[in-house]
């Protein structure tokens, strides 16, 4: 908490606001990316007389459900980490929760790889048809974002160890958290729209 005192409150407030506005715009942009994908999904689904088309069977829900649990628990664990970190908790108290978040994030990726292996084992390839294309393209694009977000979470480890929470660290933790929760929400949408219904 050392540097905060040296900044005047206008700059503190300004940097907090700038960071939050920018992150909002970032999330709007990413939402539009996924919204376009969902638009494509809706377009194919509405124009197809039966779904999944051409007698394709639905995807087994086992691995997607595991993924859902992993990402929801990781979001929860991040919330606990953030509360403790911004509350001024020491590295000893905060780091395990960040570690748990990263572990669950990796767990999510593990279930995704298992899903892909399982699907291709059943002859369900990206090139088999548009339903397969949709399942793979959605999970690939989402997983690519998850990888970026896990790297960002790992980037928080040295921040946590530094044990000093200025406005820079506060913004970093808040923004990475928003991105992580955002990906969780997108996964939930994908889970219900693509796998469940």
């Amino acid at each position: 908490m050392s540097r905060v005192a040296t900044l005047d409150s206008a700059e503190l407030e300004g940097r907090r606001l700038a960071s939050s506005i920018a992150m909002t715009v970032v999330l709007v942009s990413f939402s539009m990316l996924f919204a376009s994908l969902f638009l494509g999904y809706a377009y194919y689904r509405i124009t197809s007389p039966v779904w999944p088309p051409m007698g394709m069977s639905k995807v087994d829900l086992y691995f997607p459900t595991l993924s859902t649990f992993a990402i929801l628990l990781s979001s929860l664990s991040f919330v606990i980490f953030k509360t403790k970190y911004l509350g001024g908790g020491s590295a000893k108290k905060t780091l395990p929760w960040l570690g748990l978040t990263i572990f669950l994030g990796l767990g999510f990726m593990f279930t995704q790889f298992s899903l892909w292996a399982d699907l291709s084992g059943k002859g369900f390839y990206a090139s088999s048809g548009v339903f397969q294309s949709l399942v793979y393209a959605f999970t690939w694009i989402h997983a690519a974002h998850i990888v970026m977000a896990i790297l960002a979470l790992v980037w928080l480890v040295p921040t946590t160890l530094k044990n000093e929470c200025t406005i820079t660290e506060e913004n970093k933790v808040n923004n990475i958290g928003k991105f992580w929760h955002f990906l969780g929400v997108i996964w939930l949408l994908m889970y219900f729209i693509i796998f469940v219904i």
Binding site: G40, Y43, Y44, T47, S48, P52, P53, M54, M56, Y125, A126, S127, S128, G129, V130, F131, Q132, S133, Y136, A137
Partner: peptide, 18 residues
């Protein structure tokens, strides 16, 4: 990767690519 989103004719063989 050989997905079929925009393949014309995919509708006839494998679903609804458009």
């Amino acid at each position: 990767f050989g997905t079929q989103f925009f393949l014309a004719g995919a509708a006839a063989t494998s679903g609804t690519g458009d």
